[in-house]
Simulated scan of single mutants.
Amino acid sequence: MSEHTIKATGRSDEGKGASRRLRHAAQIPAIVYGGGSEPKSIQLEHEHIWLASQNEWFYSSILDLDIDGKVEQVLLRDMQRHPYRQLIMHLDFQRISANQALRAPVQLHFVNEETSPAGKASDVVVMKELTQVEVSCLPKDLPEFIEVDLGELTVDQIIHLSGLKLPKGVEIPQLKLGKEHDVAVVVARQGRVEAESSDADSADVPAAKVEKDAE
């Protein structure tokens, strides 16, 4: 059993009209699919799900979906939100198998930046190029987040995907595609130097070209 339980109710009425009626009743239409079983339409209480959606675990943890007393382990795969109202319109959940590896996005937590050599330098900008990464693992090994320790980060250092410390049993499928996919996660650059470089580039543009561009 996971640490997070979401209660739901099965439903038989479908279509736009049914979904509209559910939303007016403060319910969210949703679907559960996969796992060798037929897709099942469900509904959930909006207030409960809205509160859950404010937590990181809702998006990257295995959830115990309790449908009329029967519990299935699932992952949230899609969430449709209203364009401007605080309203969740629809949810997709995927059933998981305990013995089958899954892929899921996991959030990155950056720690100790302030105490690092790069973080202490006033002229250095620490850029987080990624905030989450897709991992592959068995359901029991899925981490809620991956911690990235920046305590030793120095000026001009780059931390790549391959430099992340992964929990046991967790892999990053992207790294199997070749070195060019080992992208940067964190980059520490001297901000003032970059600004001076940009100013210098602008100063090197010939006056005639500037006038031409202005035309």
Rank of each mutant, 00 (worst) to 15 (best):
Ala30Asp: 05
Ala30Met: 01
Ile31Val: 13
Ile31Trp: 04
Ile31Gly: 01
Val32Leu: 03
Val32Ala: 01
Val32Ile: 13
Val32Ser: 05
Tyr33Ser: 04
Tyr33Ala: 05
Tyr33Thr: 05
Gly34Lys: 03
Gly34Thr: 00
Gly34His: 08
Gly35Lys: 01
Gly35Met: 01
Gly35Trp: 07
Gly36Leu: 08
Gly36Ser: 02
Ser37Cys: 02
Ser37Asn: 11
Ser37Gln: 13
Ser37Leu: 10
Ser37Ile: 07
Glu38Ile: 07
Glu38Asp: 12
Pro39Ile: 01
Pro39Leu: 06
Lys40Gln: 15
Ser41Gln: 09
Ser41Ile: 09
Ser41Arg: 00
Ile42Cys: 03
Ile42Ser: 00
Ile42Asn: 03
Ile42Lys: 06
Gln43Trp: 04
Gln43Glu: 02
Gln43His: 02
Gln43Val: 06
Leu44Ser: 07
Leu44Ile: 04
Leu44Arg: 00
Leu44Ala: 04
Leu44Asn: 05
Leu44Thr: 00
Leu44Cys: 05
Glu45Ala: 00
Glu45Phe: 00
Glu45Ser: 02
His46Gly: 01
His46Gln: 04
Glu47Asn: 02
Glu47Ile: 04
Glu47Val: 03
His48Thr: 12
His48Gln: 14
His48Leu: 10
His48Tyr: 11
Ile49Lys: 04
Ile49Asn: 01
Ile49Gln: 03
Ile49Tyr: 05
Trp50Thr: 10
Trp50Phe: 14
Trp50Gln: 11
Trp50Tyr: 13
Leu51Ser: 14
Leu51Lys: 15
Leu51Thr: 11
Leu51Asn: 15
Ala52Phe: 10
Ala52Ile: 06
Ala52His: 11
Ala52Asn: 10
Ala52Ser: 13
Ser53Ala: 14
Ser53Ile: 06
Ser53Glu: 03
Gln54Glu: 13
Gln54Pro: 12
Gln54Trp: 02
Gln54Ala: 13
Gln54Cys: 11
Asn55Ser: 15
Asn55Ala: 14
Asn55Ile: 05
Asn55Leu: 13
Glu56Ala: 15
Glu56Thr: 12
Trp57Cys: 08
Trp57Gln: 10
Trp57Tyr: 15
Trp57Phe: 15
Phe58Glu: 06
Phe58Gln: 09
Tyr59Gln: 08
Tyr59Ala: 09
Ser60Ala: 14
Ser60Met: 07
Ser60Tyr: 07
Ser60Asn: 09
Ser60Thr: 11
Ser60Phe: 06
Ser61Met: 10
Ser61Trp: 01
Ser61Val: 01
Ser61Gly: 09
Ser61Arg: 09
Ser61Tyr: 05
Ser61Gln: 12
Ile62Pro: 00
Ile62Asp: 06
Leu63Gly: 13
Leu63Val: 11
Leu63Glu: 07
Asp64Glu: 13
Asp64Phe: 12
Asp64Trp: 10
Asp64Pro: 10
Asp64Gly: 12
Leu65Trp: 09
Leu65Asn: 13
Leu65Pro: 15
Leu65Arg: 06
Asp66Glu: 14
Asp66Tyr: 11
Asp66Ala: 09
Ile67Val: 15
Ile67Gln: 00
Ile67Thr: 12
Ile67Pro: 05
Asp68Ser: 09
Asp68Ile: 14
Gly69Ile: 14
Gly69Gln: 09
Gly69Asn: 09
Gly69Ser: 08
Gly69Arg: 08
Lys70Cys: 12
Lys70Glu: 15
Lys70Gln: 14
Lys70Ala: 15
Val71Asp: 02
Val71Phe: 00
Val71Asn: 08
Val71His: 08
